[in-house]
Design a protein around this nucleic acid. Sequence first.
DNA 1: ATTGAAAAGTTAGCGCCACTAACACTTTGT
DNA 2: ACAAAGTGTTAGTGGCGCTAACTTTTCAAT
Lengths: 223, 223
Amino acid sequence: MLTTMKKRKVGTAARKAGKVERKAPYHHGDLREALIAATRRLVMERGGENFTLADACRAAGVTTAAPYRHFRSKQEILEEIASRGFAALKERAMAVIAEKGPGTLEAIIAMGQAYVAFAVNETALFRLMFGQDPSLKKAAHVAGTGQDCFSHLIEQITLYCQKNRVRGDTLEIALRLWTFVHGAASLQIDKDYLAIAPQLDVNCLIANATPGLLAPVQGSRKR
Amino acid sequence: MLTTMKKRKVGTAARKAGKVERKAPYHHGDLREALIAATRRLVMERGGENFTLADACRAAGVTTAAPYRHFRSKQEILEEIASRGFAALKERAMAVIAEKGPGTLEAIIAMGQAYVAFAVNETALFRLMFGQDPSLKKAAHVAGTGQDCFSHLIEQITLYCQKNRVRGDTLEIALRLWTFVHGAASLQIDKDYLAIAPQLDVNCLIANATPGLLAPVQGSRKR
DNA sequence: ATTGAAAAGTTAGCGCCACTAACACTTTGT
DNA sequence: ACAAAGTGTTAGTGGCGCTAACTTTTCAAT
């Protein structure tokens, strides 16, 4: 869709259409967003490793020098996408919670399943968010959205613990659950390659394990 | 150590020393191993993303064309390292099991902690093994060692379940535990960037959560 | 020992990529 | 209307992965 449009001389037209927020588009319309969209698509298709900025430029119909008016480096585009990924993950998790009713066991389980579903459906994005490159996460922007995302997840679990009077350190229990869910997501997207118990359904795994994870902490010694 | 030695004219000497297995070294001594060692070191230092084959060549004291006598591509070197990583992970886990006594709860907990310790101590390697690039894991060699590693982990947990008469699907319980431990490892190496509950000790987290994860499966519906 | 084949290095070069500098066109604010 | 700022282009640099062709070293058979 975005890639089909050839150089628009618009700018003003787009502005009057009322869809403009950041400053104003000049030549291209909004090259910044177009590049992000193209990058996102390419990362989905070919993985974050094999993505080249030059390809995104071709998809957006500009030369390879153009992106540097909007991003400092190739990495900065990936950071933006990872950051939006965390935001999207948070939104989905929160939507599930709202649907099932905050503070219920169903909501907690469904949130975990949504987390895994996110990893499965948007694997390349999930890998970008939790993948190799630490410098990507070090970026203040990404770290901020990531922390925001996780603090909301943790918050929902602690809410459940309080409402249902689960004994023990609620933060530890919340972290336990999230740890388990994150592990399930990580292994799920690798199970094809590593041939991990393909006959077992992740959603059942999560649903069955969650009660045990909500058990009170015995020792609970911190650090 | 390996990098300090300049072109050895040896070959025959090395063979007589009785340390030769694969065919025989010719010019360099054993460029294949030297490149693997250099790559491993560079990946540890700079991460798998930023590693360049050219750097490994410089470290080994050969030109950038030399590696292609031993590897088909840059990727193939990384595959070898990932594969050895899985083997090392398995060995460490098995060593811990043997030390604590197979089939005991202590051994299971210690194995999980060793798993996380591996991820923390050899983060770049762990990231390479479970990182972004799926094509790396697709390689038969890597997938094989990976599967072997995990089947041993799972086996130890099922052994515990049988010895201690844990009710329920032992495979599911084993998978639960491994899922949790893998999640803990993954989050642990990202906690610095994402500021995840830094006050909580992972070893305690694992030790506290393990009993709850060994609870019997209720529904246990597969797929 | 000689010698031919195979192994394992070299040089030179291709195409691609990330990124930069200098320049040109467009839009905006005054 | 005009200067300034924004946003694109062309041209070029250096590095990388990889290949082809050549040279040197080692091995193995006579």
